[in-house]
């Protein structure tokens, strides 16, 4: 099994077969996580650099764990973009790291296109761990894995992505991946947080969250950031919660079983109420576990190593 690209820059243009291969591989690798000794030698001798130019806790830890479970050698490079600005260029950073003989780079950056840019400066496999508001493919893959676990298929299913779609790379990758896999996608939020032309990616648009709930089989609820209020994109947390917050009351009105997802970290009581986040409908913690499995799958498949070798 191999993917059609040696990088994972995003889900745009990634064929359904590749996504299926990643999800199937992740499903197999997930069994390793439940073993007494959750570690295999698959990536022994492979060096992975986690290059994080933006603060991240869970994605970085998830990648690190995935690498360690596969026995890769890992190094972490974390810095804020601003301190890099004062020092060396991104190109010099990656060239210097490459000169230390590395195989794969996991990169997060506040600027869209940085993973692509790195493919132009290095021969290492590049994995996008989030670039600006562009893509976050492993997040979408773990979301899809979690939904496929529940449904058995993604085809014909309806997923509504609720919240700050405009600034969301999670939405960017989810829309692309889900559409490729034959699911239907709706994005929902205040108009100021929905980017222009999102329909061109294959998503329906609604500004009414009750309509989205009525339509959907699953809700993927995005984190709302206070700084968007400061920029005048919505008037107050209070009004946001009143209009778009996912509450038990709202869900009960829909009179159906909906799957609740959130990429984390949750603002409890803002975009998502605690009783919903902790309800049986929520698969938020499954998403986290699947995140490790999906990242293991991506690492193995891009490395070209045989995942059945233990």
């Amino acid at each position: 099994m191999a993917l059609s690209s040696s990088h994972l820059l995003g889900l745009e243009g990634v064929p359904a077969e590749d996504i299926t291969t990643i999800l199937d591989t992740a499903k197999n690798l997930k069994t390793i996580l439940d073993r007494p000794i959750p570690k295999v030698p698959t990536l022994r001798g492979i060096t992975v650099v986690n290059l994080f130019f933006e603060p991240s806790t869970r994605t970085r830890i998830s990648f690190e764990l995935a690498e360690k479970r596969l026995s890769a050698d890992t190094v972490n490079f974390s810095t804020s973009t601003s301190s890099v600005k004062k020092g060396e260029t991104l190109k010099d950073t990656i060239r210097n790291i490459e000169a230390m003989k590395i195989d794969m780079v996991v990169v997060r950056h506040s600027a869209a296109g940085v993973p692509y840019f790195l493919t132009q400066c290095t021969d290492a496999n590049i994995i996008n761990a989030g670039d600006g508001r562009h893509e976050h493919p492993t997040q979408a893959l773990l979301d899809m894995m979690s939904l496929r676990d529940k449904w058995g298929t993604l085809h014909g299913k309806r997923v509504a992505i609720i919240g700050d779609v405009r600034h969301s790379r999670v939405a960017g990758s989810n829309i692309r991946g889900l559409v490729t896999m034959g699911a239907e996608v709706m994005v929902c939020g205040p108009r100021t947080l929905i980017p222009p032309g999102i329909e061109e990616l294959g998503a329906k648009v609604s500004y009414n969250v009750d309509e989205a709930i009525e339509w959907a089989d699953a809700l993927n609820i995005l984190r709302i950031q206070l700084e968007r209020q400061e920029k005048g994109l919505f008037p107050s947390i209070r009004e946001y919660h009143a209009e778009y917050g996912i509450t038990r009351e709202r869900l009960e009105r829909a009179k159906k079983e909906l799957i609740i997802m959130h990429p984390g970290p949750i603002n409890r009581g803002v975009e998502l109420d605690s009783d919903v986040a902790d309800s049986d409908a929520s698969i938020i913690l499954d998403q986290v576990t699947n995140g490790v499995a999906v990242r293991m799958a991506v690492l193995v498949l891009l490395s070209g190593m045989d995942s059945s070798q233990e």
Partner: peptide, 13 residues
């Protein structure tokens, strides 16, 4: 430019 491309590329338009 703000439009479909800025949304696709995730770059502010």
């Amino acid at each position: 430019n703000e439009g479909v491309m800025s949304t696709r590329l995730g770059i502010q338009g």
